[in-house]
């Protein structure tokens, strides 16, 4: 403790702890109560069988884990999570990255116009986004299929098609999150010193070279943040359109790990299996984070 202005060393020591802990207490208490305690509770529950209503949960040991890991649905959810993530990385990391680069270094007029309009969808609710796209995707009369038919192209039933349902739902999430990621990346990009880029221009570097060799390394900290958020938050964001529009269907073709947990909790009321799936999901996410850290940390340049 640096600050000691009260008389008596003992009192100072106590007071020295009182203030910092008093500052931390509210936040820590809320996080402990509503994030970490439920986590422990979930871990415990994963060894039981319980339908949320019966008075006594039944101890079943590792059965829930074994059954989950042996079920087709869990692995479907697992691979779909990867599929969603890959699409979101393209639409919510790569695309806004390039867009932000163009806006920050290749275009000089209309900055505010672009920023304002591209950010606009991110102030909307995912629920709003979901119902808008429910209409856009309507197989019989929706605008997307009306346009495709006009152009003589096949018009698939987006939300009930095995092939299209995941991209279709990912696009909803991507549309809503694009603007936020774009602004965050833009914030990183405008901080890149212009002199570096001008110097490269003088050496006749192409725009792509400038992006890849100069801008990208200098903004890798921001990009890493967006990457992690896209991977972790993306699978949670995508849950809303899944739950509202397809309920995981057709035939579990649009389920992901987050929806899988929800389904076993509030649709099947097999909370033990849901908890086991939650624990496995956390381990997977943890592993992903660790990998990202290991792989990416080497190449990351921190702006600060």
């Amino acid at each position: 403790m640096k600050i000691a202005r009260e008389p008596g060393p003992k009192f100072a020591a106590i007071k020295g702890y009182l203030v910092p802990w008093g500052c931390l207490a509210p936040a820590l208490a809320f996080l402990a109560l509503f994030t970490f305690w439920p986590l422990v509770s979930t871990l415990k529950l994963s060894f039981y069988q319980w339908n949320m209503v019966s008075p006594t949960p039944k101890w079943v040991g590792l059965t829930n884990y074994l059954e989950i890991l042996r079920s087709r649905e869990f692995w479907l959810a697992f691979w779909h999570t990867l599929e969603y993530t890959l699409i979101l990385l393209a639409l919510n990391l790569a695309l806004p990255y390039i867009t932000a680069y163009i806006l920050s270094h290749l275009v000089f007029k209309g900055q505010n116009f672009y920023r304002a309009l591209i950010f606009l969808p991110s102030v909307l609710s995912l629920a709003v986004a979901a119902v808008i796209f429910l209409w856009l995707y309507n197989p019989l009369a929706g605008p997307v299929n009306a346009l495709l038919r006009l152009l003589g192209l096949p018009a698939p039933p987006w939300l009930s098609s095995y092939r299209w349902v995941i991209p279709a739902l990912a696009v909803i999430t991507a549309w809503k999150s694009f603007g936020y990621n774009f602004i965050v990346l833009l914030a990183g990009l405008v901080a890149v010193p212009l002199e570096l880029i001008e110097a490269a221009r003088l050496e006749k570097a192409s725009n792509w070279q400038i992006f890849w060799r100069i801008v990208r390394p200098l903004t890798s900290g921001t990009a890493l943040y967006v990457l992690v958020m896209t991977v972790i938050i993306g699978s949670q964001y995508v849950f809303v359109p899944i739950q509202m529009l397809t309920n995981g269907g057709p035939d579990q073709a649009s389920t992901n790990l987050v929806f899988f947990i929800y389904q076993y909790t509030f649709n099947f009321f097999q909370t033990g299996k849901a908890a086991a799936a939650a624990v496995i999901t956390l381990i997977i996410f943890g592993g992903l984070l660790f990998l990202q850290k290991r792989v990416l940390e080497k190449g990351v340049y921190y702006e600060n």
């Binding site: 649709n267 099947f268 097999q270």
Partner: peptide, 15 residues
């Protein structure tokens, strides 16, 4: 106890 999930299996089969 698994009636809700059994129903879902049939729905998935239909799809």
């Amino acid at each position: 106890n698994n009636g809700l999930q059994a129903e879902q299996v049939l729905l998935d089969a239909r799809d």
